[in-house]
């Protein structure tokens, strides 16, 4: 073969494609990913999926078990549980995504600067992370929600502010490790500018662990929100999230156990899906295993 155009030559398998192939072979991760897509779509399209309104009450019916009309039953006010779970899922998923986004932005910026700068800057920045890490955060979250009232925006910010620390540590570790690799040194000796090195050589190699950790942060954020809502400090009625639905379910679980079980299943199922997907991504993207 002696083609003159580069495009005529056979394309190699990039690490990204390699990872994608490995991920597709991981059955649990694929099931997790699909579940996630289905759950997200159902929640987003809740008004079209469910014939009932979110606050539409059927006081005559009251709390009733699963039936053909109400697949997952109704709560004490006769509201359709499936509808409430779907709408609650919107809040839970949104908190998960937005708070993780906050954590991602702060954590990646902080960690990347500390790792790239190194030396004293790094020491000071990471010492700060260490100190904040040692604070009893759950207690602060509870305090903040009590003090400033149950504010959804505040909830995002507070949870995001808790979760960015680990992200910062991971990114900093990545950048530091990469900085010592010879291909970064080679890039310096070629005379590339700092920004080009970051853009072309550092970021593409550091992004894998960030993706993985992001996927694993979402479930822990959702847990945190559910925890706060369960304590009655998060989402306020009539709005609900899976956490507050579970809290409501607990109160009446002796008589109407489905009110606890179904919201619980919704939360656990989503957490499962996210964790399986995250574990699968971690296995698939691990650069070390693809080296040999």
């Amino acid at each position: 073969m002696n083609a003159t155009r580069i495009e005529d030559y056979e394309q190699g398998t990039s690490l990204w494609r390699d990872a994608w192939i490995r991920l597709r072979k991981n059955r649990l991760a694929v099931i997790g990913g699909m579940t996630l897509i289905v759950v997200t779509l159902l929640c987003l399209l809740a008004p079209f999926v469910s014939p009932y309104g979110y606050e539409q009450q059927d006081l005559v019916l009251g709390a009733a078990g699963p039936s053909a009309r109400h697949w997952l039953g109704t709560d004490v006010f006769g509201r359709d549980l499936l509808t409430r779970i779907l709408y609650g899922g919107r809040i839970s998923l949104m908190v998960g995504l937005i708070a993780t986004g906050v954590a991602l932005i702060i954590g990646v910026t902080w960690g990347a600067i500390a790792g790239y700068a190194g030396g004293r800057v790094d020491a000071v920045m990471m010492r700060f992370v260490d100190i904040v890490y040692a604070l009893p955060f759950m207690i602060f979250v509870v305090l903040l929600m009590v003090v400033f009232g149950r504010n959804l925006l505040l909830l995002f910010l507070v949870i995001g502010a808790v979760e960015w620390l680990t992200m910062a540590r991971i990114v900093r570790g990545q950048v530091q490790g990469l900085k010592q690799l010879e291909f970064i040194e080679a890039a310096v000796s070629l005379g590339l500018s700092g920004w080009t090195i970051i853009r072309r050589h550092l970021i593409p190699n550091a992004i894998g662990p960030v993706i993985v950790y992001t996927t694993l942060t979402i479930p822990s954020v959702m847990l945190l929100e559910a925890f706060i809502s369960f304590l009655g400090l998060g989402i306020q009625p009539p709005q609900s999230s899976w956490g507050s639905l579970i809290a409501e379910g607990v109160e009446t679980m002796e008589e109407f156990p489905w009110l606890l079980i179904f919201p619980g299943m919704a939360l656990s199922l989503t957490l499962f899906a996210l964790n399986f997907l995250g574990d699968g991504l971690r296995d698939a993207l691990d650069v070390r295993t693809s080296r040999d």
């Binding site: 990039s14 690799l181 010879e182 291909f183 190699n205 650069v287």
Partner: peptide
């Protein structure tokens, strides 16, 4: 830099794994 270059020891670490 153009006039002076380096060849490294470890051919596994000295190439960016994400570049052709």
């Amino acid at each position: 830099r153009r006039r002076m270059q380096m060849i490294f020891q470890d051919p596994y670490a000295s190439l960016n794994p994400r570049m052709t």
